[in-house]
């Protein structure tokens, strides 16, 4: 309940403050957001499985975000940034889909 309120609070805060993304973060923020969404979906799935753990969620969230951003950074340095970010998005998208499918099975029994 508290995390959901936190998400809503963050969205409201963003809408109110209307932040501008700094230039150095522009390549990494979208990937980081997708990775964080992946962590959130995994957390919801774990919650429904009854194995949710706050600590695991925090660690997975941060590591997800940093690893994703680091991969893209590495790709940018190697000259394959756009391809690598595409790959990261694809992988995270697949994970989000499988987590969403598990959540769906929990919620709808189908």
């Amino acid at each position: 309940m508290i995390p959901a309120l936190g998400l809503v609070a963050g969205i409201v805060l963003g809408l109110l403050l209307q932040p501008a993304v700094p230039v150095w973060a522009q390549p990494y923020l979208p990937i980081a957001v997708v990775a964080a969404l992946d962590a959130v979906f995994g957390a919801v799935r774990a919650l429904l499985d009854g194995i949710f753990d706050d600590k695991v969620f925090v660690v997975s969230f941060l590591s997800n975000v940093f690893v994703a951003a680091f991969i893209v950074y590495l790709g940018d340095q190697l000259g394959v940034g756009s391809q690598l970010s595409t790959g990261v998005v694809v992988v995270l998208g697949i994970r989000i889909f499988s987590n969403a499918a598990a959540i769906r099975r929990h919620l709808f029994r189908a």
Binding site: I2, P3, A4, L5, G6, L7, V8, A9, G10, I11, V12, L13, G14, L15, L17, P19, A20, V21, L29, P30, A32, V33, A36, L37, V40, A43, D54, F57, V58, F61, L62
Partner: peptide, 17 residues
């Protein structure tokens, strides 16, 4: 609380992005 803060950051970054 840390998780909630992370989600705050996520919502914020989501809207910003």
């Amino acid at each position: 609380i840390l998780g909630a803060l992370l989600l705050v950051a996520l919502g914020f970054a989501l809207v910003a992005q």
